[in-house]
Nucleic acid binder design. Structure first.
Lengths: 71, 71
DNA sequence: ATTTTAGGTATGATATATAATACCTTTCAA
DNA sequence: TTGAAAGGTATTATATATCATACCTAAAAT
């Protein structure tokens, strides 16, 4: 599997968990203490996220890190 | 748990798996197609690795990504 | 004794993740 | 019929991940 594919899957995981918790991108960004302009491309799989960012996201979504990395 | 702690744990995971497979840092770096000068600080938990790098590492070690992220 | 090999550090260059801000469009409630 | 609130994009700036290379020390191998 290509790197890009992993990023896309991670983005989809994040996006679908966020939606399942009824969080807007704004609310989500504020919980992550990150910029929406950075989070949306992450959900689209356009950014090669760092582990610290993934941890922030997992915390904001209140899920274990593993949930973001299911392939 | 602090970000730094996660990085340290991930580094320890990587280091101990590498050693358990009897890989030198040079051989490891070459399998990752990465620089040793970047991998050693990762093992020390000094670098906020990206997902693509973690995936390269997991592939080089022939373990699932999850194995690097056990806390 | 000399050479390898292994772990490790230092440094300058380049690519890119993230911040910060502004803006656009559509939808829907007031 | 306006004006929030939603998803999304664009851009500039800053921090830092990764590359590329050179170098050091200690321990083993020859």
């Amino acid at each position: 599997m290509e790197d890009k594919d992993y990023l896309k899957l991670i983005g989809e995981n994040i996006s679908s968990i966020r939606k399942s918790k009824n969080l807007s991108t704004n609310e989500f960004a504020s919980r992550c203490e990150m910029e929406k302009s950075n989070l949306i491309p992450i959900e689209k799989g356009r950014i090669n996220v760092t582990i610290n960012t993934l941890i922030k996201i997992a915390n904001a979504l209140n899920v274990p890190l593993d949930d973001l990395l299911k392939f």
